[in-house]
Amino acid sequence: MNAPLLQVTDLVKEFKVRSESGKPGVLHAVSGVNLTLHAGETLALVGESGCGKSTTGRCILRLTEPTSGTVEFNGTNLLSLDHEAMRRMRRNLQVVFQDPQASLHPRMTVRRLLGEPLEVHGMPKAEIPARIEELLRLVHLRPEFLDRYPHEFSGGQRQRVGIARALAISPALLVLDEPVSALDVSIQSEIVRLLIELRERLGLSYLFIAHDLAVVRQLADRVAVMYLGRIVETGPADLVYSNPQHPYTQALLSAVPIPDPTIELARRRIVLQGDLPSPTDPPSGCRFRTRCWRADARCASEQPLLTAMANGQEVACHYPGADTAVSVASSKP
């Protein structure tokens, strides 16, 4: 394989916090994450709220400064760049946020929203109008929308504007931070379809951050599952979905409802006990052990590292293994 487009190594992000009693503490949001993304690939970073997936994405984009680690983009360590160099680098990696209502300036028209990134990165003024129209066509919006404000659009249309703005300067990598979770089901599928279409047309690479495993399934080539700041399992999407090895992945997949009553009634669901531990005081050893039915003394004392299996899957568990009752068969419609 070629050199990866994005290589994240030992990424750590800690926040200084104060507990209610006023005691200073450390919130371990991301604790040593490694990711590799090759050109043209879609890597999904999945997990539940508070697992650190969004913080990871923000650290990669340097919207948050990581505590330590490296983020290499095409061989350049982004974390070593100064503010101005990073600003110029941004044309290569863009982001689409969850809520386009919040992430688009409410007082800018579509024309300005799409024109601004072009101006910022030095496109000659004369070429901008043509490029803006091209962008609208790309995301299937009508040209007469150019002078409208974000609030005049429906949620799905707004997200198309958000995607067009991110694509304006032709980035190689798009970080998609929950791009469809604020949308209605029928609109979600349109955006997913658009993302698939754009990926093929423009040869984009996606880092797709999401909690909805069913949506991820439609897009991802590879999946990385996060729990409490660490990646617990990663590998080709089909393998992880059909044959999850980590108990958390199994519980997570089993919890996702399938819109088919006959399958639902026959499924065994692993219902996790207890709550997510606090990231200010994560469990020792394996962070999942407090809710894991396979955990023993070793899990409390020794942190399991991501270990590659023969088929390309990597699991961070002392006792990995399939749980036949919960795996979701890979079936074609």
Binding site: S186, S189, R193, Y241, P259
Partner: peptide, 18 residues
């Protein structure tokens, strides 16, 4: 147009309009 966990759709269908 519902995405399903147990399969990858070849074509993601959707309802046009709002």
């Amino acid at each position: 147009c519902l995405p399903r966990l147990d399969r990858r759709h070849d074509v993601v269908s959707s309802i046009g309009g709002t």
